[in-house]
């Protein structure tokens, strides 16, 4: 049971039917923009689901159009699952590079201090 992604299934259905219902669009808008919703009423639940399904639908559409996860990021501005992992990896590499650069600086400074002491 856990393998079924309900939001993905609803998004597929929404994509196939390209829902153009005005009520649904309004619910998506409210669910996406906190300023438009948030009355604390049961309607927020529908708005929240609508926004989730819409986001997943757009992601699915981009994946199908572009054929791979990286291109879908460019198309939607939102990372597809595969590219999220790549981005995380790229960040970690950047972080490690930063640490190494900082360590190298500290090491160079230490060597310069030792050289100065020896020269003195």
């Amino acid at each position: 049971m856990a393998d079924i992604d309900l939001i993905r299934a609803l998004a597929s259905w929404a994509l196939v039917h390209e829902m153009a219902d005005e009520g649904w669009k309004a619910a998506v808008d409210r669910g996406m923009d906190p300023a438009l919703s948030g009355s604390g009423e049961p309607r927020d639940v529908v708005d929240g689901i609508s926004a989730l399904v819409y986001r997943e639908k757009e992601r699915l559409k981009a994946e199908l159009t572009a054929g791979d996860g990286l291109a879908s990021t460019a198309a939607t501005g939102q990372a597809a699952p595969g590219s999220e992992v790549l981005e995380e990896l790229r960040f970690e590499v950047g972080e490690v590079r930063g640490r190494l650069e900082s360590i190298e600086t500290a090491l160079d400074a230490l060597i310069a201090r030792l050289d100065a002491r020896d020269a003195g």
């Binding site: 856990a2 992604d5 309900l6 669910g31 906190p34 919703s37 948030g38 927020d44 929240g48």
Partner: peptide
């Protein structure tokens, strides 16, 4: 402001099969 946010977060947790 929090309402749609928490709704979405809770739904993501709830709407698993």
């Amino acid at each position: 402001m929090a309402a749609p946010f928490v709704t979405t977060v809770l739904l993501e947790e709830l709407l698993t099969a």
